[in-house]
Amino acid sequence: MGAATRSATAAAISALDDALHPGLLGRLHGGATADLGDELLAAARAIASSNQLTSLLADPTLDPKNRSQLIRRVFGDRLERRALQILESMAASRWSEPGDIVDAVEEVGFRALALLSDDPIDAQLFAVQRTVSATPEIELALGNGASPVEARVALVDRLLANASPATRSIVRHTVQLPGGRRPVEALERAERVVADARGRQVAIATVAKPLTQQQVDALEQRLGSGYGRKIVVNQVIDPALIGGVRIAIGDDVIDGSVRTRLDDLRLRIA
């Protein structure tokens, strides 16, 4: 991600915060609605579906005001006022690559859903991610761009019948986004964004057998102290590890598994 995109994304997140926590004048005219996240995700899909629109919104040679006006012309009668304001501010920003604006609108949509819902969205996204990655048929069906979008959305609704509306919105979006990532990759990104929006970071603990809740709590506390923020531990069971735990947090990997220690011992003996 280029410097311009990092700055523009941070500004978009700040604009979302302003929409969710308006001043007195904003509150008098109505706060952000629960549909804000859905509207932003729909806008991300609409922008991604048009290479011309994506290029124009990220074209640094166009006046920022003209790019904002383009947003009003395209979405003015389709979006709630606050969603429109966020998109206008994003169109006025500078982006490192044209496609970055789609990713940023998507991220802000995920964040809006996370902040406007009290449901355990990140945990549900992780569960969906594990189901999809463990079932090649489902991953193929969800990621098959040649199949009708309606069929993929219907599959999502069947899989997530008991999930929260926000979780369903996010997973639906990942299969609807034109030229989107593989389902598992899209779900991983969504989970990270949702967790970050709620002030925490996800750690994946791969273990030979499930940890007790007491062990999970202790691990989260220890990792949180080390990383300086709340850590949420998700477990992946892999009997091949024999014992111990392998922890992945972003790009960091802490490997304390018995399998790794045995492999190291074999290398030293050899």
Rank of each mutant, 00 (worst) to 15 (best):
4 A>S: 00
6 R>E: 09
7 S>R: 15
17 D>E: 01
18 D>R: 15
25 L>H: 13
27 R>M: 10
27 R>W: 12
34 A>N: 15
35 D>E: 13
39 E>H: 08
43 A>R: 07
56 L>T: 14
58 A>P: 01
58 A>K: 05
59 D>Q: 02
70 L>V: 02
70 L>I: 04
72 R>S: 15
73 R>G: 15
74 V>R: 11
75 F>I: 07
76 G>S: 11
77 D>Y: 04
79 L>Y: 11
87 L>F: 02
94 R>F: 03
97 E>W: 00
99 G>T: 12
107 E>S: 11
108 V>I: 14
110 F>S: 00
114 A>R: 10
124 Q>P: 07
127 A>K: 15
129 Q>M: 13
131 T>F: 06
148 P>S: 13
169 S>F: 14
172 R>M: 02
176 Q>R: 15
177 L>I: 11
179 G>E: 08
184 V>L: 03
190 A>C: 06
191 E>P: 03
195 A>V: 01
202 V>E: 14
203 A>M: 06
212 T>G: 13
216 V>Y: 07
216 V>D: 07
221 Q>T: 13
223 L>K: 15
224 G>Q: 09
225 S>V: 06
226 G>P: 10
234 N>V: 05
234 N>K: 09
240 A>D: 13
245 V>A: 03
252 D>S: 06
254 I>Y: 14
257 S>N: 01
260 T>M: 02
262 L>R: 04
264 D>W: 07
